[in-house]
Amino acid sequence: MSVRDISFTFADARPRFGVGLRHPHYTDFAEAATLPDFVEVHSENFFAPGGASRALIDSVRARCDVSLHGVGLGLGSAAGVDPLHLERLAALVVRVEPLSVSDHACFARAPLPGETVPVHGADLLPLAFTSASLNILCDNVSRVQDALRRPILVENLSAYWAFEDDCFAEPEFLAALCQRAGCGLLLDLNNLVVNATNAREADVVAAARRFIDALPAAAVGEYHLAGCTPVESGPMIDDHSRPVSDAVWAVYAHALRVLGPRPTLVEWDLDLPPWAVLMAEADRAGAIAGGVSGESSDKGGSTTLSAVPA
């Protein structure tokens, strides 16, 4: 069976348009008359068993749907997932009842040489695309899903290294993960652009489109959009510090056409703009999705959708 023929689907999720909710925007969010369809928070920021963060997440949840996006599980770690981290996440999931729970296809935990207790790299470190790596990732994702009693979404990385012994292409690796573990894919389109840029692809948008074309549509549960700082030398860093780039908008339109509409989230983590600017980015995502939907229902028609990148 081809990995494109998977037996489940994350494609039923209603298209929604959200933004990442970060600390500088808490007051804006609380006072906003118009809210996005959902907000995404970083799970670890709300692990404290008490205090202001706990009250805050309750108040956010009372106003808006929430997705929980983690950066600390280290799902591909050969050392396994930290039981305490998983326990904290499970408690938060029960409290928040999120739209989705996600983390990354990365590793983060391993004991240093001569030690037995793992350290945590506090980063999203790249996995080798090997069978052993896939087995580790599938086992850990299954353990998390068992603990949370729900499927999770796993996000593709922006990675500054690849490995000599990779034996899967990344889309194939991610599709196999989704098929075997029953999780979905949180497809970060900016990461595709960053990786294509760092791989010195002549046409980064075309490279990202090829990646999308190789994915099973049913496995994709959400899109992430972001922008990052352009570079003149060295690797492009996925710092989520800029508006969504034109390249990412173009890749988004392609994903909508090929994979279909999904919940879409605009991430912005550093050098945050005013709340209204962030909301405008989410509105633009909605306009593009609406335009692509119009194309689908009006095939061959003469409607020109200027909001939709080619």
Partner: peptide
């Protein structure tokens, strides 16, 4: 399978040792 996991564990350990 075990050997593959051990190789991945060693690779991950090496990378974290490099980071710190």
């Amino acid at each position: 399978t075990d050997a593959g996991r051990d190789l991945e564990a060693a690779r991950q350990q090496a990378i974290l040792a490099a980071l710190f």
